[in-house]
Simulated assay, not measured.
Amino acid sequence: MDLMDSLFISLGAAVTIYYGVKVLLFTGLLFPKFWFPLPQSFFSSMGEWAVVTGSSEGIGRAYALELAERGMNIVIMSRTKETLDQVAQKIRDTTGKKVKVIVTDFTKEDVFTEIEDQLKALNIGVLVNNVGILPSTIPSKFLDMEELDQIITKVINCNVKTGAKMCKIVLPGMTKRGKGVILNVSSGVASIPFPLYNLYAASKVFVERLSQGLQAEYKDKGIIIQAVAPFGVSTRLANYPKTNMVNMSPEDFVKCSLQYLAAGDKTYGSIWHMIMGWILQTVPLKVLHAECVLRGIQDYVKKKTANTYTSESDAWSG
């Protein structure tokens, strides 16, 4: 009897401690400024320059502006020079920081030798791997997408290959200096198998696993590597939904997500996005993958956009 009493007491204590820690961690997520404080000079202390891919608009542009506000010179990268030049001028006018523009198309095969040459002389303290493409804003089954072979290649080059290549370029300097930050922008849809957005969701799973694996390998070198997995952000890729607590503006999302930099190797970026992630992973996949649900998703998105498939420019994130 004494043995059974001890067993139940120990089990009860373990459960209490487990859920107590859960509550404590959740409290930390509610008050990130208190639990995960970062000094204003934190990012600039990592190095002189921040590199942001896909920074001509949306989340990438917001990261570039925010990091400049925090004292960093910025390298902005995307494929549209005119838009990049506008972002560069905005950064210079509002922050006085230096801006380097690199025009490149990450859907192409051989772009990284030139990028590495342009970055090798810079003291890079922060890398934001943001660039990505969505094959179609209209949810589509795999075989229903037009020009599928080309789409597969572009998604792999842009969403998968680019993040790994940029880490390869930037990590050696960070490990040598013993400090640095890499933010790899994933997506909330990577939380579960996501029909109708298969290629995009699968590519973002790669981003998360690469990011989390690299953090395990290099955290003892003083480097922070974090996957950022937003749900609703009002960008062109998402057809600019109205902003609210869930559908945040890119600027608000970036400011909020940076508060969770010290919270672990993955963040949803805001408490509301975290709740969405938890809900999505709680609903049985049989329900989410039901044909009637998939048709409902397609019909809903079709009502929100006039185009059946996006053009190449419309599919670009950043």
Rank of each mutant, 00 (worst) to 15 (best):
M1S: 13
M1T: 15
D2L: 15
D5M: 15
F8D: 10
S10I: 14
L11A: 13
V21L: 00
V23R: 14
L25K: 09
L30E: 08
P32T: 05
K33L: 01
F34K: 07
F36M: 02
L38T: 02
L38R: 03
L38W: 02
S45P: 04
M46K: 12
W49T: 00
V52W: 00
A64E: 02
L67A: 05
A68E: 02
E69A: 06
R70T: 09
I76L: 02
Q86H: 08
V99S: 06
F106Q: 06
T107Q: 03
K108I: 08
V111T: 08
F112C: 09
F112D: 01
N130C: 12
V131Y: 02
L134G: 11
S136R: 13
K141M: 11
D149S: 15
N157S: 13
C158L: 08
N159D: 10
T162P: 00
T162F: 01
G163T: 00
A164H: 09
M166E: 12
V170Q: 10
L171E: 10
L171A: 08
T175W: 01
I182A: 03
N184C: 11
S186F: 07
V189H: 02
L196H: 11
L199A: 13
Y200D: 07
A202W: 09
S203M: 11
V205C: 07
V205H: 09
E208V: 15
Q212M: 14
Q215K: 14
Q215W: 14
K219Y: 08
G222W: 07
V228N: 05
F231P: 08
F231N: 09
F231G: 11
L237M: 15
N239F: 09
Y240M: 12
M245H: 12
V246M: 12
M248V: 02
E251V: 14
F253K: 05
S257I: 11
A263L: 04
D265V: 12
K266P: 04
K266G: 11
S270T: 01
I275P: 00
K286R: 04
A290Y: 01
C292A: 09
V293E: 00
R295L: 04
T308G: 15
T310K: 15
S311A: 12
S313N: 07
W316C: 12
G318P: 09
